[in-house]
């Protein structure tokens, strides 16, 4: 994946991280934190980015990256990261 994509990933994931920090403060459950980063925070971050920075999608379109593609890739990266961490935590607790 290109540096151009990771610029978008960084910009959108900062909102996800803020959301996840908020969830971690109110819930303190590792499962809820991972669920937040992998699913709910992803959706929240797309919503916020669309609200405040939607014009920037034209920057990525001109660079050859469609909106759907960069959103899907971002979602998958964060979901797989959360899922992997969940498996690791589950294994540790199981043992």
């Amino acid at each position: 994946m290109s540096e151009l994509f990771f610029r978008y990933y960084r910009d959108v994931t900062k909102y996800n991280l803020l959301f996840t920090i908020f969830i971690s403060v109110i819930s303190q459950s590792p499962f809820a934190i991972l669920m937040s980063f992998g699913i709910a925070g992803n959706i929240f971050s797309f919503f916020i980015y669309r609200h405040f920075q939607s014009i920037e999608y034209y920057f990525y379109l001109n660079g050859g990256l469609s909106k759907n593609r960069i959103m899907l890739n971002t979602f998958l990266i964060n979901f797989l990261l959360s899922f992997t961490l969940f498996i690791v935590m589950w294994k540790i607790n199981w043992n």
């Binding site: 610029r7 910009d11 920075q53 014009i55 920037e56 999608y57 034209y58 920057f59 379109l61 001109n62």
Partner: peptide, 11 residues
């Protein structure tokens, strides 16, 4: 095709 939007779209 490159498209220059009327608004500034740079990060």
């Amino acid at each position: 095709i490159a498209y220059h939007h009327e608004q500034i779209f740079l990060p």
